[in-house]
Design a protein around this nucleic acid. Sequence first.
DNA 1: AAGTGTGAACCTCTTCACAGCA
DNA 2: TGCTGTGAAGAGGTTCACACTT
Lengths: 209, 209
Amino acid sequence: MKEIPIKTIERLSLYGRVLEMLVKEKRAHIYSHELAALTGGTPARLRRDLMGIGYSGSPGKGYNVSELQKEISEVLVDPSGQQVALVGIGNLGRAILTYFRVRRPKLKITAAFDNDAEKTGRVISGCRCYHIDDMHDIIKKDAISVGIVTVPAAVAQRAVDRLVTAGIKAIVNWAPVPLHVPDDVFMETRDITMSLEKAAYFAKKGTSA
Amino acid sequence: MKEIPIKTIERLSLYGRVLEMLVKEKRAHIYSHELAALTGGTPARLRRDLMGIGYSGSPGKGYNVSELQKEISEVLVDPSGQQVALVGIGNLGRAILTYFRVRRPKLKITAAFDNDAEKTGRVISGCRCYHIDDMHDIIKKDAISVGIVTVPAAVAQRAVDRLVTAGIKAIVNWAPVPLHVPDDVFMETRDITMSLEKAAYFAKKGTSA
DNA sequence: AAGTGTGAACCTCTTCACAGCA
DNA sequence: TGCTGTGAAGAGGTTCACACTT
């Protein structure tokens, strides 16, 4: 099996969600130019993306909506389910827990961790909260493979180290610092400050262009 | 002036923050390989990035820390200051307000909007909250040029339209839907679900590789 | 006629490798 | 000597354009 480009993976997530809506609307087929318009892309790129996952449509009918939706969801997330742990129950952590409360039956945040005893032992947005010292055991027991880090910058590396030691394979980091993980662990840093500064740059630039 | 690559802009934000720390530590100079290591990049790429903003170091001494920090901050954000508006005072909106409370004197969230009367009229994390109907006037009056959208998906396009009408030039959108803006408005969508699904994909893939 | 799938051209960004400088 | 600045090569992703299918 050929390697799927990382940009394709990112867009598949979006295609998948739009297709879910279309499935609910009982839409049977869709053309590349239609789905491209709905997702803000070009038809050629969309077809190239689907080529990447080996899915074919038919000229004259386009793509089968429910079939493609299923296909994409199985590429992204293990059909047998994947569990997620969140570390750091602050404002952002709570926002993310709330956000994922209903969605994604195959991809669930099943445990949240914090070092503040105030926050542990209860359930927030349907997610059980534990003390950070229990992280290793819980992650092993529940076979959690993905971690979300929403702790302050100063303790982010420690949080990541613990996740890695517990066997986590991929991490989404929200702390605004570059962190180190072994080569076999995937990590992406989502930097809020960077987003805002980039927007500021274009706001400034746009006015003079 | 030559166009600065978008990827360079993103990294400049990170370089800038690391340099701020170094300034506080009274560090005078730094080599490309040192700053690259601190930011998780390669020396060649870092030098290429600085070439992009026209900043030069000197062989044998490296880069002047405080000078470079200043230079970067002026590339990203207008030295005379830029104002930011946030729309949608939910969990995520509050998290972002708290997050930016102290930082970035030149780039401040000065107004937050919501359509819930419960949330308006007060001050959250140092930011004044208004009803969404006052958006146009406030944005004009305060010369706000950047918007952050943290409303539910269903009303995100409406929020963006209002921001654009009020004259906003760049938007960071946190709603998980592709939105439309005119060509002269910069918009970036930060999709939480996408991050998590991408991580899930690599977690799944990593275990079989 | 109006789609899809895809080789090839194109563009953007990264890395290499080395001349030139302190 | 050991760094910086940069031409040139390479890697990754996008778009073009067209043969093929229904």
